[in-house]
Design a protein around this nucleic acid. Structure first.
Length: 202
DNA sequence: CTATGATCATCC
DNA sequence: GGATGATCATAG
């Protein structure tokens, strides 16, 4: 499927209620009192008839699908509820590649984001807000590159290394723990709200 | 077990 | 309210 075609396809979903779609595709939201945190993303992937797998990237060759939750603040305005996971950090790869060749940049250039509005928990209705693409230019590109270099330099520093990475680092992009939990120590690049705000109109 | 889809829990 | 670290379901 072409990227432009998929975007058109996703835009048809604007205004739809996600729980309804999840039910149609038989996607698990609750399992024994616990939440399937990836359910929203699976709904979109199923809608586009994309196979759900855990391979690092090319969801479908030329682009990448992400979803981000939005929420209403008490004054009635919209705000980003969470940061967005972009991709896992592979220390070896990051040390060998400059930003221009990085997996991070390749991903960012391919990402299509679906912003959706959520309530205070998964039982609240969830509606699709908009579909956007990332377009790194000028100031944004340089800032993201700086964040990548910060992570890279930390990994290359003999006194720091992988374990020194923390979510406190980075202005637009941060290195943060991510994994199956229970002792997993893998980390991923996350996009901070201020980065998302550059591309998503609230 | 790990990567991907992300959100939850808790701290400030 | 925003930020940071931990965690869950699914699939390979």
């Amino acid at each position: 499927m072409e990227r432009a075609e998929a975007i058109e396809n996703l835009k048809k979903l604007v205004g739809k209620e996600l729980h309804e779609l999840a039910h149609q595709f038989k996607i698990t939201i609750y399992q024994g009192g616990k939440v399937n945190k990836g359910w929203a993303g699976h709904v979109f992937e199923r809608h586009l008839q994309i196979p759900i797998n855990s391979a690092q990237s090319p969801n479908f060759g030329s682009w990448e699908l992400k979803s981000i939750p939005l929420k209403y603040k008490k004054d009635g305005k919209l705000a980003f509820k969470e940061t967005m996971a972009i991709t896992m950090i592979d220390p070896v790869h990051v040390c060998q590649k400059e930003f221009e060749e990085s997996h991070l940049l390749m991903k960012l250039k391919k990402i299509v984001v679906v912003a959706r509005i959520v309530g205070k928990n998964v039982d609240e209705p969830s509606y699709i807000h908009s579909v956007v693409e990332f377009d790194l230019q000028g100031e944004i590109y340089d800032a993201v590159k700086a964040d990548y270099d910060l992570v890279r330099n930390t990994l290359l520093d003999p006194d720091k290394g992988f374990s020194a990475l923390t979510g406190k680092m980075g202005y637009y992009i941060q290195p943060r723990t991510k994994g199956a939990g229970h002792g997993s120590t893998s980390r991923a690049f996350y996009a901070r709200p201020r980065f998302l705000a550059k591309f998503i109109k609230l």
